[in-house]
Every structure is written in C-alpha cells, then in structure tokens.
C-alpha cells in the first residue's frame, strides 16, 4: 500500500515537472523571438546594473562623491565632447558621463519605489472591491475613477506644497496617483476569476474571504500587472524627470536626469549636448522599457503562444 502511494507521488511529480519546464521554455521562446523586446531587455539590464553597482558597490567606480554632482567652478561653461569628457560637460563644469552614470541610480530606484507600492495598493483595492461587490465596489471604483482623471503632474505639485518639496514627498505624490490603473486591471481579472469553480469549491470548504482573495485570486491577476509594471517604469521615469526639470526638487547637486537637463537648459543654443545627452538617456530608458513590456505582453498572450 505504502509503495503504491509513493509510486503514485512519483508519477505525479514526473507529470508536473516536464510540463512546467515546457511552459517556461515556450515563454522564453516567445520572448526571444521578438528582437525589439530583447534589445529593450539588454538596455534595461545596463540601467539595472548601473543602479545596482552605484547603490551597493560604489567603490568599484572611480567616483569621489558617488551620490552628488561634482561641479568645477573653475571652468563652468559647457565644453564639447572630447577625450577627457566623452559626453562633454554641462553648466557648472559637471562631466556629463559621470553625471549620467550617477543619475541613473536615483531615477531607477525611485521609479521602482513608486511603481511597486502603487501596484500593490491598486491590486488590493481592485480585488477587495470586485470580490465583495455591491456598494463597496461602487464606492472604491468611483474613487479610482476620480484619482485616475487627475493630471498627475498638477497633483504632485499640490502635494509638494503640502508636504514640502523633497524626494520623499515626490514619491508619495506619485504613488497616490499611480494605483488606479492597477485597480482596474485587478478588477477585470477578478471579475472573471470570481465565477470559476475552484473559487466556489474553496468557499464551500470554508476558506476565509481573506485567503480566497489573496491566495487564489491574486496569483491570477499577477501576469497582466507585471506587464503593466514594466511598461510604467518608463512613464514614471519621464514624470520624475519632468518634475525635477521644472524645479520640484530644490536641493542642488542632486544627480537626477531631469535636473541635469535643466542645468543645460540655458545653453541650448550654444551647447546643445548639455541638454540632449541627459534627455537621450531618459528617452532611451522609456523606450527600452516599453519594448520589453511589449515582449512580456506577448508572453502572456495565449494567441501569440499558440503560434509557436
């Protein structure tokens, strides 16, 4: 009897394991068949490792001050690209190559710090609203609609006045406006999942509402949310840089791509590289993340899967 049980267990495992491997291989195949998505992933990894190295091992790179810009007031006028300064310099004699490498750290982690809490809040609100239905759904979704329609730059400015214009208040302001999209995604998935039989079975066997919501429904809504997170990283970076560009952050010498762009702003006629290069790095990140997100979307799309 015991032998039989163990044999059955073995066969079960053997049945599941190759299937999962096949799934994973199929996903990778779909992703890597999309050349643009692979290019996006490579660029994203460059940004990621830049941020990682500067955050955790700044001593590897030859920077005296890894967390602030190093102005050179002896030679403040922007210099064109040369061997000493491969990207040229910007207003108070800041070397652009070093400045960009330092800036990517802040922008990258800040966009992650905004997107992930935003996604979590949105998921929780969306799932709670749809699972309970009735007036809870009505109230929560109307709040979502209201927040969704506010121009986020304007709201961020208003919150910046209330909380003070710092990095933290920028983060809070953007988290407050970034969750509604995720609430909608969670809602659309939950509406489908709620009616399936395994949820009914869980409820019949006496599982608590909390457990059904966050153990059975939540994993089903994760793939589209993951795609949206990867798409949103670029938008968030654009927003952060836009806010820094118009002067949301009063702290000088903060390595931030939008702030770097605003340093070169007064020299746009005579030294265009001072504005083009930081702007280029913002756009490059947004583009790469968008291409990568499109690749991930193909991976979770059943129609694309069946083609291969």
């Amino acid at each position: 009897m015991k032998e039989k049980m163990s044999k059955k267990d073995m066969t079960d495992k053997n049945e599941i394991k190759p299937d999962r491997w096949r799934e994973l291989r199929l996903s990778l195949q779909v992703f890597f068949s999309n050349k643009a998505a692979v290019a996006g992933l490579v660029i994203f990894l460059f940004y990621f490792f830049d941020a990682l190295i500067l955050q955790f091992f700044p001593q590897i790179l030859p920077f005296k001050h890894p967390y602030s810009l190093t102005p050179n007031y002896a030679d403040p006028i922007p210099l064109p690209p040369s061997w000493k300064h491969p990207f040229g310099t910007t207003y108070p004699g800041v070397d652009l190559l070093r400045a960009v490498i330092k800036s990517i750290r802040l922008d990258f982690w800040l966009s992650l710090e905004i997107v992930i809490p935003g996604a979590i809040i949105g998921l929780i609100i969306g799932i709670i609203a749809t699972y309970f239905g009735g007036w809870i759904d009505e109230v929560l979704m109307r709040i979502t609609d209201i927040v969704f329609s506010i121009p986020y730059l304007v709201l961020a400015i208003a919150i910046g006045y209330v909380l003070g214009r710092t990095l933290n208040s920028m983060m809070i302001a953007l988290i407050l406006v970034w969750w509604p999209l995720y609430a909608r995604y969670a809602r659309s998935v939950t509406l489908e999942t709620k009616e399936l039989t395994f949820i009914e079975a869980a409820r019949a066997s006496g599982t608590s509402n909390f457990k059904i919501m966050f153990k059975h429904i939540l994993p089903n809504s994760l793939p589209p949310v993951f795609v949206q997170i990867s798409l949103d990283l670029g938008t968030i970076m654009l927003t952060i840089s836009a806010l820094a560009f118009i002067g949301f952050l009063p702290a000088a010498n903060l390595p931030e791509l939008g702030y770097l762009t605003s340093l070169g702003y007064n020299y746009i006629q005579t030294a265009p590289w001072a504005m083009i290069i930081p702007g280029l790095f913002i756009v490059l990140f947004a583009l790469a993340v968008n291409l990568m997100g499109d690749g991930f979307r193909d991976v979770i799309d059943p129609r694309r899967r069946s083609e291969l």
Binding site: I150, Y152, L153, V154
Partner: peptide, 29 residues
C-alpha cells in the same frame, strides 16, 4: 486630456510661454 494638462506644465516652462502651466510652476517654486 488629463495627460495633456500635465504636459502643459513642462512644455510652457521649456518654451517660456506665459500660460497656466508656467504660472503654476512659478507658484510652486
């Protein structure tokens, strides 16, 4: 349109166009 209104804040600052966005930026600073 909501996104456009957000964009106005930045673009008026870049082009020095004296509109609502510029005014809002000045108020913020």
């Amino acid at each position: 349109v909501a996104g456009l209104l957000g964009g106005v804040v930045v673009i008026e600052d870049v082009f020095d166009y004296p509109g609502i966005g510029m005014w809002l930026t000045d108020a913020m600073i």
